[in-house]
Every structure is written in structure tokens, then in C-alpha cells.
């Protein structure tokens, strides 16, 4: 029968008893469904309580009385177990994080059902002003997010004006939207891209414009993980950076970090696109150097070429 441990059964009983106390005559079926417990486990728990639980000296009048009649349950208890155990901090944190994250999704109706639920939950968790925890999965234009989410649901092809940050290029693409996910602080659309002929991840906040096509597609049975973004495969680049640029390590994904004797940092990181490396080298300044790890090529010209290009804006003609 039950393989639950004693503490798991204890937790279960400590939520079921108060529920029955407050809803006398509730059916076994509803309890089983509501608390996701097998019927026979539920009956075993209630029998157990009837036989064993009570107060000293355990005379019949001091024992908990559980009555199951025609599939309906009533409990006569003393004063104990009339309310469920309060939430632990971790339980509260977990549920509040999920609720806050979803309520703060761009486009979610403020003051809607979830907002009200989260406010009530925050109050019993011990955050009556409801401002000790804020969760934002990512920034995005709510209209764009809504359109791509609807297109996933309806399997509708979309046309996107997309800005590839890594390559610093705008492009227009027809995609078949498969899934919307939040990850690492941004919203992404996983979609089959016609131009790339494969699944790609698009950052929703980099979609400049989205247009419905009215065309449907057959969704793939199992969309892939879509770890590949538009910029393709990464190469390893070694950077020698001047001392005092901790932000480099804190901001970027790195494969290796070594602090040299003179205080400079040697960092190896994956680079997928040139514009991405240009930005990094411009920010690091003239003291920094870059080298392709596999070919050994010195990449310092990336920074000076980019600087020359940007300067043309500041000194036209």
C-alpha cells in the first residue's frame, strides 16, 4: 500500500483534517482529487487517525472521531488540527515567486485574479505591504509578447522584423512559433525559421515588429531545446584585460578566468558574432587584447576598425 514516509503522511493528515473540519460531509472523491491522494491512501490515513490520534488519557471521549458515511467524511476533534500548518518561508517563497513572476509578465491585467491571489498570499506569508519580493522574468513589449504567444497557441506563421544584437543586423524573417519561454532574464520565442531552415531562439524584446500572416502550420511533435541562437556556433576567444574590470567576469559567460601577476585578467569566452566582440573590445579600451584560441590569430584590429567606424559618426566628413 502506501510507500509514503511517516513525515509525508503526517503532512498529508495535517492538511486533510483541517479541511474536513471546515467542510463537514466532504466526499472522499473530492478529498482525493483536491489533495491529489489515492483513494485507498486517503482511507488508510483517516482510519489511522480514528484509531490512534487523540489526547491523554486516550479514553474514547479524548480520541479523534472520524466518520465516513456514504462516501462523506466528518471529523469530530478537540480543538487541535482545526487549521492547516502555516507555510514555511521556503514554501511561501516558492509560491510567491511563481505568482509574482506571472503577474508581472508584460501585458498581464493589473488587479486581475492572479494579482488578487498574490496579494492575499503575501499577506499570510508575512509581507502585508506586498513589496518584499519582486520578480520580473524579462522586459518585452506586451503587444509583441501577446502576438507571439497567440501564434504559438494557434500554430500561425509570423513575419518578424528582428534585430540580431550579436551581428548588429536587422532582418525580416518568416517563422513558425513553437514556444515562448523566459530564461536568464529575457523572454524568448523558439521558432522554426525559414531563412535559417532550423529552430532558432529569438529574444522577444529584439523583435521590432511582428505581422500576422494568417497561415497555419503543422506543429512539430516535440520542439527541440532551441539552444542555438541566430548567431550560430561559438569560437573561443582569449582576452587580456587591464586590471579593475571585474564587470567583465560578472557580465559575460566565461570559460576560464585567470588573474595574472601584474593584476591583469586573462579571460577565455565564447564568441558567436563579430559585432558582439566589437562591443566588448570597445568597452575594455585600448589596453585590452584579443586572440582566437584555436587559430592563434590576433584580433586587436576588431576594436580599432570598430572604433574608426563609430568615430565617423562623431566626426562626419
Amino acid at each position: 500500500m502506501s510507500r509514503a514516509t511517516a513525515t509525508e503522511r503526517l503532512q498529508r493528515i495535517l492538511v486533510i483534517l483541517p479541511y474536513v473540519v471546515q467542510h463537514p460531509g466532504v466526499t472522499l472523491d473530492e478529498l482525493s482529487r483536491r489533495f491529489d491522494i489515492e483513494h485507498d491512501e486517503l482511507v488508510a490515513d483517516l482510519d489511522f487517525v480514528l484509531v490512534y490520534v487523540g489526547l491523554h488519557p486516550f479514553t474514547p471521549d479524548m480520541l479523534t472521531e472520524v466518520v465516513v458515511e456514504d462516501g462523506c467524511v466528518t471529523v469530530h476533534v478537540g480543538d487541535y488540527f482545526r487549521r492547516p500548518l502555516r507555510l514555511t518561508h521556503t514554501e511561501g517563497l516558492r509560491l510567491l515567486t511563481a505568482g509574482r513572476a506571472l503577474a508581472a509578465r508584460p501585458g498581464t491585467d493589473p488587479g486581475g485574479t492572479l494579482d488578487r491571489a498574490v496579494a492575499k498570499l503575501a499577506a499570510v506569508v508575512g509581507d502585508p505591504e506586498a513589496d518584499a519580493l519582486q520578480v520580473r522574468l524579462g522586459a518585452a513589449d506586451p503587444e509583441v509578447l501577446a502576438v507571439v504567444a497567440d501564434a504559438v497557441r494557434d500554430s500561425e506563421r509570423l513575419e518578424l522584423d528582428y534585430y540580431s544584437y550579436g551581428r548588429d543586423t536587422p532582418s525580416t524573417r518568416v517563422v513558425e512559433p513553437l514556444r515562448v519561454v523566459a530564461r536568464d532574464g529575457s523572454w524568448y520565442l523558439l521558432a522554426h525559421c525559414h531563412r535559417a531552415d532550423g529552430q532558432r531562439l529569438f529574444r522577444v524584446d529584439r523583435i521590432n515588429e511582428v505581422r500576422s500572416t494568417g497561415e497555419r502550420f503543422e506543429p512539430a511533435a516535440a520542439p527541440g531545446e532551441g539552444r542555438v541562437d541566430l548567431d550560430g556556433v561559438a569560437r573561443s576567444v582569449e582576452i587580456l584585460a587591464p586590471a579593475g574590470v571585474r564587470w567583465l567576469i560578472d557580465t559575460y559567460v566565461t570559460d576560464e578566468v585567470t588573474e595574472l601577476d601584474d593584476g591583469r585578467l586573462r579571460v577565455v569566452l565564447p564568441v558567436t558574432a563579430t559585432a558582439w566582440l566589437e562591443r566588448l573590445m570597445l568597452r575594455l579600451g585600448p589596453e585590452a587584447h584579443a586572440r582566437d584560441v584555436s587559430t592563434g590569430d590576433v584580433l586587436d584590429a576588431v576594436a580599432s576598425d570598430a572604433a574608426t567606424r563609430v568615430l565617423a559618426r562623431y566626426r562626419p566628413g
Binding site: 492538511v15 483536491r34 489533495f35 491529489d36 492547516p84 500548518l85 502555516r86 521556503t90 509560491l95
Partner: peptide, 17 residues
Amino acid sequence: LGTVGADEALRKLGGLP
């Protein structure tokens, strides 16, 4: 956060209607 689930919190709040 380990195995401590949101499930238990939801049960305490009244389970799944």
C-alpha cells in the same frame, strides 16, 4: 531549493479545486 515543493503550500491553502 531542493525538494520543498510549491505543492505542499498549495495543499495547505486548500488544494486544487
